[in-house]
Design a protein around this nucleic acid. Structure first.
Length: 511
RNA sequence: GGCCCCUUAGUCUAGUGGUCAGGACGCAUGGUUCUCAGCCAUGAAUCAGGGGUUCGACUCCCCUAGGGGCUACCA
């Protein structure tokens, strides 16, 4: 099994899915997952994308057993450093007469191809240099003539191979031409390098996108010519953009980096990617990593291309987030909050009385762990965050939404929904009530959810109005929004002083 | 142009001759609640088209159409 990306761009969802299936299959069967970088195109390969690909795979947790950074028994793992293998295998083919030197220039080739297209003929290589004698070729090379090495494709017959997902394939040799093995700059072409490397690296299974199906017959010829054993092939359906076109830059969020930066959960990403092109039974859709390895099977991979659906991705992410225990969830939230500058390290909580900590199960180990990495982080603050996360519950679906959603607990410059204000708060009556409510809060000796709720409902009774008449405007006053978790908890999280302040400010918009 | 792959709701899919064509996301409606989310219930929505084969086709065969790929000194 191997994943052999070329470092000519970022790691996109298609590449990641291919890597994932290779990884899953390797884990499932106890094989090795080999990472090889196909950088034979010097013009397009960059160090940045190489780094980016490794970063993406690491983030997804798809660790490899052999690779350019780790080494391994069949290295090196960068095609650009494997020249000697390609040349020796090409030489072998030359000696057997299964390959030959070709001196046609790119310009000539281009012209002849145009001609054939115009005459509606196959734009294949015409075999012009096929019969140049070895001595003559050697002489021309000595003379400094530019040359490539081509594969001598049989004129008749068929190539056949089996695909685990799609069954038998048979291609007629007459549809194939004498393709190039070694370019004039001495570098191998993809079809040649991939075979030499897969064979020499003892790759057992070639799992890749189905855009390689048509390349496979050429590769099979090379395997056979070189006397290498054929690996097993499995061609995965492509992942397309919403417009059903091949994925490209203009499709927006198709880079793994994007999801990493947006704080998606790697496990959710893995889960969703696994589902793009594979399903267990069409019913079960949530998988932990281990369950995925267990359930995965190449035979159940579908044949039809799929479209990356962001809303489904978000759904899977939300499900994973929902299932996460409070501790890791809080730690994650804490990191994001800090990253976004919402959470200052020296934040101090103002609560006249500690909130009910029964709500935080297993809080002691939590605190210890967090304190270990961040000495400056206030213990109480973390506790409060854990509670906020807990009370928000399923409202928090995506880690990336946390800064926005929790902003008003930490900052006074939170966003205000004008519509919410005009609906609930923008009346003399409501403002008056907010003032009364703030006074009510100020009078409280204790400050816990029950007490606060009693106070508010008591006030509503005395005013002879529905509790909602206080709750809704109060929510807007405190959070700027028409939506929030349980209002009484919001009051608790803000603390008596802050809550009362915001109520008074709302009662008095001018001041 | 040649060769190849694919085709079940908007999307991901289950389904290999007889099913009310199942599930999920999304969407809509109702219930619960202080709002929202959630949860529960309900609903709209699919076998690309045409020919065969068959007592019977989503399922098998052929054709057409649509989408995708390869046909590079890209991978």
């Amino acid at each position: 099994m191997r994943f052999a990306p070329s470092p000519t761009g970022h790691l996109h969802v298609g590449g990641a899915r291919t890597a994932l299936y290779n990884w899953l299959y390797a884990k499932k069967t106890g094989g090795r997952f080999v990472l090889r970088i196909e950088d034979t195109d010097a013009r397009r390969s960059t160090g940045d994308s190489y780094e980016g690909i490794l970063r993406g795979l690491r983030w997804l947790g798809l660790g490899w057993d052999e690779g350019p950074d780790l080494g391994g028994d069949f290295g090196p793992y960068l095609q650009s450093t494997r020249g000697v293998f390609y040349h020796s295998d090409a030489q072998n083919l030359l000696e057997k007469g299964m390959a030959y030197y070709c001196f046609c220039t790119p310009e000539e080739l281009e012209k002849r191809k145009e001609d054939s297209v115009r005459k509606k003929l196959d734009p294949k290589y015409d075999g012009r240099c096929r019969n140049i004698l070895p001595e003559e070729a050697a002489a021309r090379i000595d003379r400094g003539d530019g040359h490539v090495i081509r594969f001598r494709m049989p004129d008749e017959g068929n190539v056949v191979f089996r695909d685990i997902i799609r069954g038998e394939f048979s291609f007629s040799n007459s549809d194939l031409d004498d393709f190039i093995l070694i370019r004039s700059d001495g570098k191998p072409t993809y079809n040649f390098a991939v075979v030499v490397d897969d064979a020499r690296m003892r790759i057992s299974h070639v799992i890749r996108g189905d855009d390689h199906i048509s390349n496979t017959p050429r590769q099979v010829h090379i395997y056979n010519a070189l006397g290498y054993r054929l690996p097993k092939f499995a061609h995965l359906p492509m992942i397309l953009g919403e417009d059903r076109a091949r994925l490209s830059k203009r499709h927006g969020a198709t880079s793994i980096d994007y999801y990493r930066e947006k704080h998606y959960l790697p496990d959710a990403m893995i889960n969703y990617l696994a589902l793009l092109g594979w399903s267990l039974d069409g019913k079960r859709e949530l998988f932990e990593r281990k369950a995925l390895i267990e359930a995965f099977s190449l035979k159940k991979v579908s044949k039809n291309p799929s479209v990356f659906d962001n809303s489904r991705m978000e759904h899977i992410n939300a499900e994973h987030f929902k299932k996460m225990p409070l501790f890791p969830k809080t730690v994650l939230a804490y990191r994001v909050l800090k990253d976004e500058g919402i959470l200052p390290p020296d934040f101090k909580v103002d609560m006249s009385r500690p909130v009910d900590l029964k709500l935080v199960p297993g809080k002691e180990p939590i605190l210890e762990e967090v304190l270990k990495e961040d000495r400056d982080f206030d213990q109480k603050e973390f506790q409060r965050l854990a509670l906020i996360i807990k009370v928000f519950g399923n409202r928090l679906k995506l880690l990336k939404d946390i800064p926005e959603m929790l902003r008003y607990y930490y900052k006074d410059d939170f966003a205000v929904d004008e519509k919410a204000v005009s609906n609930y708060l923008d009346s003399a009556e409501a403002r008056e009530r907010m003032l009364l409510l703030s006074e009510e809060l100020d009078r409280l000796k204790y400050f816990d959810v029950e007490t606060v709720e009693e106070a508010l409902r008591g006030l509503a009774d005395r005013l002879d109005i529905d509790a909602g008449e206080l709750i809704h405007p109060c929510r807007v006053a405190l959070s700027g929004q028409a939506v929030s978790p349980d209002l009484f908890w919001v009051i608790i999280f803000l603390g008596k002083k802050k809550a009362s302040e915001r109520l008074r400010a709302a009662a008095n918009p001018k001041g």
